[in-house]
């Protein structure tokens, strides 16, 4: 069975220069492990292949059950000089949440 990340998690986008920062936070703390196992840096890179041109580092914050993705070369040059509409990348949290997530089979 497949769902969207949107169904079980929320996200906030932030920017520093040309770096996009996306948090990924499950609504239910029990889903944190599922996100850790399923939403890898490589998977995020593939999902955002048309936007993120640099590397992605994933940080894990088990204390608050959250993941943080720090994505380089992701904002078309950055907020001050970019020609894109959303110079901060503020809408991109909802792009992450569009990702499909295959649920493990329950036995």
């Amino acid at each position: 069975m497949s769902i969207k990340l949107y169904d079980i998690a929320h996200s906030r986008a932030g920017d520093k220069g040309n770096t996009l920062i996306l948090s990924l936070i499950p609504y239910e703390e029990k889903d944190y492990e599922l996100l850790c196992n399923s939403v890898t840096a490589d998977k995020v890179k593939e999902h955002f292949k048309d936007i993120i041109h640099g590397g992605i580092i994933r940080y894990e914050l088990p204390n608050i059950s959250a993941l943080q993705f720090v994505c380089q070369q992701a904002l078309a040059g950055g907020v001050t000089t970019s020609l894109v509409m959303d110079t901060h990348g503020k809408t991109l949290s909802y792009a992450l949440l569009e990702m499909d997530l295959k649920l493990p089979k329950t036995t």
């Binding site: 996200s11 906030r12 932030g14 920062i21 943080q68």
Partner: peptide, 13 residues
């Protein structure tokens, strides 16, 4: 609070 704690943080460590 979780969303804001992580906002614009490039290295949580």
């Amino acid at each position: 609070a979780k969303e804001q704690l992580l906002y614009e943080v490039t290295n949580p460590h």
